[in-house]
Amino acid sequence: MDLKELYRDVILDHNKKPRNFGALAPPARHATGHNPLCGDRLEVYVQLQDDRIEDLRFEGAGCAISVASASLMTEAVKGKTLAQAQQLFEAIHHLLTDQAAPTPEFLGKLAALSGVREFPARVKCASLCWHTLNSALAAPAPIAVSTE
């Protein structure tokens, strides 16, 4: 196994310079994901406009795989409909776990995560953000608190 397959340049870049890093205030939905193996924590914030993901941010500290995966996810999912996001989630799941799965075109940059499936202990790192996004989408929209 080649480490460069896992730590591709795209991954190293998104780890160093995570995109869409930060929080969104209510009424954005929010969920926390835990990786019990390493103690890492990930916060995902998502702002819906009807059935479209208008904005998406994440926060937290984690390994390169989890940070890069979250960063790539935010880029990929922003502006998509819920149905499209669900399709991406399923494709990513296959990409990470199914050795034989072909990589669909629409995954775009997310395809850089395909190396992870050679490292079963790390699959959770890559999928944590997606599960957290799902929880955030399932969470009730919080009432915006005004502080004026």
Binding site: L3, L6, Y7, L37, C38, D40, A61, G62, C63, A64, I65, S66, F119, A121, R122, C125
Partner: peptide
Amino acid sequence: VHAHDLGT
């Protein structure tokens, strides 16, 4: 370098 990456 996160410890997890180091481990791998």
